[in-house]
Simulated assay, not measured.
Amino acid sequence: MIDSLHGEVLSIGLDHAVIECAGVGYRFLATPQTLATLTRGENRRVMTAMVVKDDGVTLYGFGGAEDREMFHKLQTVTGLGPKLAVAALSVFDAAELSTHIAAGDAKKIQTIPGVGKKMAERMVLELKDKVEAPLPDGGTGGAEAASRAGGASSYASEQVVEALVGLGFPERNARPVVEQLIADEPERDASALLRQALTQLGKK
């Protein structure tokens, strides 16, 4: 079982990346959010999950243990495989999914590509007792977030532009889209920004 990879990022694709560890290049599938944290030529660590099936072995990569844990939980749902689990984590992170499942919000879960009404209801039914909804921000949490907004937006902008370039989009096309999205909604985090940018660029 390969629990994690740590080494130089050799390449980044639309849905995968390759990290070299001790002279061996490991290809893994990942969400846009995870891919956005990688930079070609730099050393990175990703958490991994290995799925073994009759037709082969597939490695999946995650930016953190929470998303990997949710990936495993999702696959305990009847009829839900690893590809759909990755699709779910491409739309919502682990905390967001936990919130929607705990709240029984099947309609929100249906926004995941490939998830219909029956599957969304099944996810709520079978996972509701297995997830914990994150606690809401309390006290000064909101104020602290607001005070960081300017710097965070600038950092998120560069991070997402870099990720989009790594995914094959020219910087001259990616940067204006990202900057406009931040201007419209400065509090949008990097993951949400990347998802929206991919949607906008896909229309062009």
Rank of each mutant, 00 (worst) to 15 (best):
Y26D: 13
S11R: 12
D137T: 07
V178L: 09
G150I: 05
E42C: 05
V178Y: 01
V165D: 03
A106E: 12
D105I: 12
R122L: 14
P113I: 12
L201S: 04
R172M: 12
A163Y: 03
T48V: 05
E66H: 05
A149V: 08
C21G: 03
I19R: 02
L164R: 01
A88T: 07
G56K: 00
L84V: 11
Y155V: 13
Q75W: 08
Q110E: 15
A95L: 04
L198Y: 02
P82Q: 11
R195N: 15
T31F: 00
V177S: 01
A120R: 06
S147L: 15
A22T: 09
E126C: 07
R27M: 15
Q180L: 06
G166R: 02
R40F: 00
T37D: 13
Q75A: 08
G142H: 06
P82V: 05
I112R: 03
G166Y: 03
L198N: 05
A156W: 01
E42F: 00
G63E: 10
S11M: 10
V24C: 08
F92L: 10
A190H: 07
S191W: 03
E126P: 06
A152R: 13
G63P: 09
A120S: 13
A30M: 03
I182S: 05
L135E: 15
Q159W: 00
S90K: 00
A30E: 04
S153T: 10
L164Q: 03
E132Y: 00
L80C: 08
L201F: 02
E171T: 09
S157V: 14
R27S: 11
L135F: 01
T199A: 13
L164N: 02
